[in-house]
Design a protein around this nucleic acid. Structure first.
Length: 865
RNA sequence: GCCGGGAUGGCGAAACAGGUAUACGCACCAGACUCAAAAUCUGGCGGACGCAAGUCCAUGUCGGUUCGAUUCCGACUCCCGGCACCA
């Protein structure tokens, strides 16, 4: 019987995982306290919406977060790693109306399921800090925060054009409208005018923009670029045209003051006050305006190609030339950007150009590019590039960038206009006409107007008895809930029936984690102990929505004195999606893998024998029938295998292709590791090596151990988790060489020492990846302390010194020979050895050496010709 | 259209800071063990030519810088993501 055969027990992940999860829970291993003197590290993962069960996206997100948390803990940090539930929202209401359960019941039941699932993954959360946003406690604290923002003047109510989702019967924020459709229902969004609550995010536009520069190191370029674009800051000139025959003016905003002399008409939005005035007198105008507003989205795409307008018959007078130009109501002018009216320069703006072509308006070139001169008659598209001004009176001959400044100066000097800054960003509309959200704590009093609910009368609780039909506003329909008295005058009054956008909850949950039990909005001391978040991990899909709102909310709370730092998330890691092949049958649509049969020439539908179309890898989703249930993997292979596969298959930012064979690979590796450590644990006990051994081969193994420590440490720090795994795999492979049956079973003391060091190092380096297995191996290696509370290993500089190195000999940059030499060999020795190599001599035959490039420790390149 | 990211074996991917391209894993092939299979172990595995030693070619395409380029620069193709009448 050889050494390997009596390998005792098999790796049993279910038993091991249950065992260690229980230990961690009982001993509160991952509890974080503010009194811990070690340096704090706040690791945050985006909390889930409790939709029912966890999916692979969650598994990936939380595995990555857990790896970082465990790594930082081993590195000696006091780690805060909390978890909670983003629990308000529409699905609960939909489920309620369909299944006749209360949204609260549905939500909490899902939370219980998902908490159990997350716990089965062995994630190192401090569950004591669990936060549930639909809890009366959280809603209470949020209402308090709302009132603080209200007092700060950051909340207001106004009549506004809203995006109305006709299916969900609710208002959507601009960010929630995707391709003109509701982000949730997918229904074409309509325009409607309603009184809405807003948070003044625009008051922070400049700071939100400037803050992105501060995040250059820690945030991905894509996210910063998306937010920059979303904020959309631009500089320009605001001035007014006088209107011929009317005693009012038409203010416009332009970023191209240099094209001022090319104006041949003006365009105003359909919702512009002037348009309404015109409509009052001209029925045709009214018809046109209505057409603009009711245009469905499907038609809108077509409509976008065509610039439509209605000539009001009014004339605008150019402030510098006095020229009269027509004013159009145009379907492409937006009311809520700039002034809702634009000066039109068809020669230098593509939209104006198209409009001018369809309405036969003059096109006047005022900027000439270097080279071929442009002619308005023959132009086929607007010229938007740089050039020299012409037909522009006093500005002729200036380059257009200088002209921008000159035109602005002229307007300012003559009191005709001013330099202004515009933002694309608009205030955050938070009103939702839903039940399952946090009520806006304001009372409408007929006498006193809008009166905030006094903090002593908070929280405004949701009524339990509510009828959910799936449409309209349940709170407004409730017979008694909204009836109350005015806190100011005591007269009968009504509650606000709008609830807050659920992005409000996720805008401060990371602050609540710092003090989940605090009897007040936020415990400033504890919040400032943990904030800012050192590392935030989540999906790229929140690049603008959540991540912009949260930054704003945090800054607003800072200005209320509740938190000190300027930016909430120092570093951001956006993980890629989990994808899988899709199968589609021409007859039956999307098919599950088990509904597909493999034939030599392809895949066929089991139901109808039609040939299957194998789609490209797509994000896992129920509709595509390409989901893999994480619970199946965890039950079949164990959480450690699932975690290892997730971390090994791709770097975190990249999309990950789910592959069953890859899961097998992870499983096999863990078994190999298990057997190896078992075998070493069975050898005579010996403390791990502290010094380099005398045996050269053994020295190489110990060098490998320390190189692995070095590589994994670097890889984890730069989030290259996959290569960290590779490094440990190499170490395991190298160590196994010493355990194979061919090696003699009588082992020297130094051999026992190095083998033990190898086993312990592999265990600890993999602990953040596969915590249960490594914890078990650690115990089996004879330790009584827990690996989760151990410290990360450091490298022995002596072990990293290789005695021999292999370097490369090149001729003209081409590899011609490899030399293994003593690490301290001199350049002369190596050059002589290199030139003595037969292959070098062969390739140098007939050539003269012109130059020698010497890279110590790496290569020697002979330049010859 | 604009902004951002990417393209390396049959596949997922690696290459710290311009210096051995294809580490690690998967799949596949061959062998060992087995009555057999699974598991495990050993070996092979970018392409072409060659008995072999070896030679040449290859990191989306084309060009440039360099002794040397997957890496830097320029142009292009394709893919992915975001934004899209923002004046």
């Amino acid at each position: 019987m050889n050494e390997r055969d009596h390998t005792r027990e098999k790796y049993n992940p279910q038993a091991i995982e249950a065992k260690w999860q229980a230990v961690w829970q009982e001993q509160h291993t991952f509890r974080a306290t503010e009194t811990d003197p070690r340096e704090k590290y706040y690791l945050l993962v985006m909390f889930p919406y409790p939709s029912g069960r966890i999916h692979m996206g969650h598994v990936r997100n939380y595995t990555i977060g857990d790896l970082i948390a465990r790594f930082q803990r081993l590195r000696g940090r006091n780690v805060l790693h909390p978890m909670g539930w983003d629990a308000f929202g529409m699905p609960a209401e939909n489920a309620a109306s369909k299944q006749n359960v209360h949204p609260r019941e549905w939500t909490y039941s899902n939370i219980n399921t998902m908490r159990r699932e997350l716990q089965s993954m062995g994630l190192s959360y401090d569950w004591q800090r669990e936060v549930t946003t639909c809890s009366p406690e959280y809603a209470h604290r949020e209402q308090e925060l709302f009132l603080k923002l209200f007092d700060k003047g950051l909340v207001y109510r106004k009549l506004s054009q809203v995006n109305w989702d006709p299916v969900d019967q609710t208002v959507l924020a601009n960010e929630q409208v995707i391709d003109g459709k509701g982000w949730r229902s997918g229904a074409p969004v309509e325009r409607k005018e309603l009184s809405q609550w807003f948070l003044k995010i625009t008051a922070y536009a400049d700071e939100l923009l400037a803050g992105l520069r501060q995040l250059e190191e820690g945030w991905p370029e894509t996210v910063r670029s998306m937010q920059t674009h979303w904020i959309g800051k631009s500089h320009g000139l605001e001035f007014a045209f006088t209107i011929d025959g009317l005693d009012e003016t038409l203010p416009v905003y332009t970023t191209r003051p240099d094209t001022l002399m090319g104006v041949t008409f003006c365009s105003i939005a359909a919702e512009h006050p002037l348009a309404k005035r015109v409509a009052a007198q001209q029925p045709a105008a009214q018809t046109f305006i209505q057409a603009c507003q009711t245009a469905g989205t499907s038609e809108e795409a077509i409509e976008r190609l065509e610039k439509k307008g209605f000539n009001t018959g009014l004339q605008a007078i150019h402030p510098l030339t006095g020229e009269r130009v027509p004013i159009f109501i145009a379907n492409f002018v937006l009311m809520n950007y700039g002034t809702g009216a634009v000066m039109a320069v068809p020669a230098h703006d593509q939209r104006d150009f198209e409009f001018a072509k369809t309405h036969h308006l003059p096109i006047r070139v005022v900027i000439q590019p270097a080279g071929e001169p442009l002619d308005g008659q023959t132009l086929t598209a607007a010229y938007t590039g740089p050039g020299i001004l012409c037909h522009s009176g006093p500005f002729d001959g200036l380059d257009n960038e200088t002209a921008k400044q000159k035109v602005i100066e002229t307007f300012v000097q003559q009191g005709l206009g001013q330099a202004t800054t515009q933002y694309r960003l608009r205030d955050w509309g938070i009103s939702r006409q839903r039940y399952w959200g946090n009520p806006i704590p304001v009372i409408h009093c007929p006498a006193c107007g809008l009166v905030p609910v006094p903090t002593t009368r908070l929280p405004v609780a949701l009524p339990e008895d509510v009828e959910l039909t799936g449409s309209g506003n349940p709170l407004a329909r409730h017979p008694t809930w909204k009836k109350t008295t005015c806190p100011r005058c005591g007269q009968a009054a009504e509650r606000e029936t709008d609830t807050m956008d659920t992005f409000t909850e996720s805008s401060w949950y990371f602050l609540r984690y710092c003090c989940p039990d605090f009897q007040g909005p936020l415990d400033v001391q504890r919040v400032n102990h943990w904030m800012p978040v050192d590392q935030y991990v989540g999906g790229i899909e929140h690049a603008v929505l959540h991540l912009l709102y949260a930054r704003f909310f945090h800054k607003a709370l800072r200005d209320c004195g509740l938190v000190a730092c300027d930016e909430p998330f120092t570093r951001l890691l956006t993980q890629g999606m989990v994808r899988k092949d899709t199968f589609r049958c021409p007859e039956h649509g999307w098919r599950y893998p088990e509904e597909v049969t493999q034939q030599p020439d392809g895949l066929y539908c089991t139901a109808c024998a039609a040939r299957i179309i194998v789609g490209r890898n797509e994000k896992m989703s129920k509709s595509k029938q390409n989901v893999v249930d994480p619970n199946d993997i965890i039950q079949g292979y164990g959480a450690d295998t699932a975690r290892l596969f997730m971390l090994f298959a791709a770097p975190p930012e990249q999309d990950l292709e789910w592959n069953d064979n890859g899961v097998d690979g992870a499983w096999r590796f863990l078994n190999r590791l298990w057997r190896m450590v078992q075998e070493i644990a069975a050898l005579p006990a010996h403390p791990p090596a502290r010094h380099q051994p005398t045996d050269p081969a053994l020295r190489t193994l110990r060098t490998k151990i320390h190189e692995t420590i070095d590589r994994v440490t670097r890889d984890v720090q730069r989030f290259q988790f996959n290569t960290g795994v590779s490094a440990v795999m190499e170490l395991v492979n190298a160590t196994n060489e010493w355990l194979s049956p061919s090696t003699p079973p009588d082992r020297s003391a130094e051999q026992l020492a190095v083998l033990r060091e190898a086993a312990e190092t592999a265990a600890i380096l993999l602990n953040p990846y596969v915590p249960h297995l490594t914890e078990e191996l650690w115990q089996r290696l004879g330790h009584t302390t827990h690996l989760s509370q151990h410290h990360w290993p450091t490298t022995d500089p002596a072990a990293l010194q290789r005695a021999e190195i292999t370097l490369v000999v090149q001729i003209n940059g081409k590899l011609r020979a490899r030399l293994t030499v003593a690490a301290d060999a001199s350049r002369e020795t190596i050059e002589a050895a290199a030139l003595a190599e037969p292959s070098i001599q062969h390739h140098l035959a007939g050539l003269t050496i012109k130059n020698r490039i010497w890279v110590p420790g790496r290569l020697f390149n002979i330049v010859a010709g």
